[in-house]
Simulated scan of single mutants.
Amino acid sequence: MPDRSIRYSFLSRAFHWSVALLVLLMIPAGAVMIQDGLPQPVQNTLFILHKNTGLLVLALVLLRLVWRQIAPPPPLPDRVPGWQRRVADLNHRLLYLLLVLMPVAGYVRVKAGGFPIETLDAWGVPALVPESEALATFAKSVHYYGALALGALIGLHLLAALYHGAIRRDGVVARMWA
């Protein structure tokens, strides 16, 4: 077990793995829900789950960002080269940016398109954007290209974790495990 001083806190790990699980479930759900020929009840269910899970992801990511200010991440082991530190930092910053941007763009796409977000509607939260086909179309493009970029960054993150965990065995990955 890694030294507690170089390990992420329990709450940081809980945020990480919760968001990771939700995002990894949302990617295929998002891809499937837009397919032609899908039975309407299945498509509706996937859309509802995707929209409302997106809200949960946004809340968790924002809480995690606040928590990172309270409990900063542990330092990388000294043996990690400077260029890898810079790439890791950039990857994390871009992941956080996209994990906020994606739900916001999804929200704008849905509300500007005149569609419901069941949880927010049930709570009586008014739409924060006007209905606008142009805005909905723009947000749809942002969400689509953001999804591609997020997939690429997640892939890079996973490859780096495999490299550090299976090849280098340098303690980087152990910081995120219990």
Score class of each variant (00 low, 15 high):
M1Q: 10
M1W: 10
D3A: 09
D3Y: 08
R4L: 10
S5C: 01
S5F: 07
S5V: 05
L11I: 06
S12L: 06
R13A: 10
A14Y: 02
F15Y: 14
F15C: 01
F15K: 00
H16D: 03
W17G: 12
W17F: 15
W17E: 12
W17H: 14
S18N: 02
A20H: 04
V23F: 12
P28R: 12
G30Y: 06
G30N: 05
A31M: 13
A31E: 08
V32Y: 06
V32H: 02
V32I: 15
V32T: 05
I34A: 11
I34V: 15
Q35D: 04
G37I: 00
L38D: 00
L38P: 00
L38A: 00
L38E: 00
P39F: 02
P39Q: 03
Q40G: 01
P41N: 07
P41M: 08
Q43H: 09
T45P: 00
T45H: 07
T45L: 15
L49E: 04
L49H: 08
H50K: 10
H50N: 07
K51G: 00
K51E: 04
N52M: 03
L55D: 01
L55R: 02
L56D: 00
L56T: 08
V57C: 01
L58C: 04
L60I: 05
V61T: 08
L63Y: 06
R64P: 00
L65F: 02
L65I: 09
V66T: 02
W67N: 05
R68H: 05
R68W: 03
I70Q: 12
P73S: 06
P75N: 03
P75A: 14
L76K: 03
L76H: 05
P77Y: 08
D78H: 10
R79G: 06
V80L: 02
P81H: 03
P81Y: 04
W83K: 11
W83F: 15
R86H: 08
R86F: 07
V87Y: 13
V87Q: 13
A88T: 14
D89W: 15
L90P: 03
N91T: 13
R93P: 00
L94M: 14
Y96F: 14
L97Q: 07
V100G: 04
V100N: 04
P103Q: 11
Y107P: 05
V108C: 07
V108Y: 10
V108A: 11
R109H: 14
V110R: 08
V110H: 07
V110Q: 12
V110F: 05
K111E: 07
K111P: 03
A112I: 09
G114R: 09
F115V: 02
P116M: 13
I117Q: 09
I117G: 03
E118F: 15
D121K: 11
D121W: 10
D121R: 10
D121E: 13
W123E: 09
G124M: 10
V125W: 11
P126Q: 12
A127Q: 11
A127Y: 12
A127N: 14
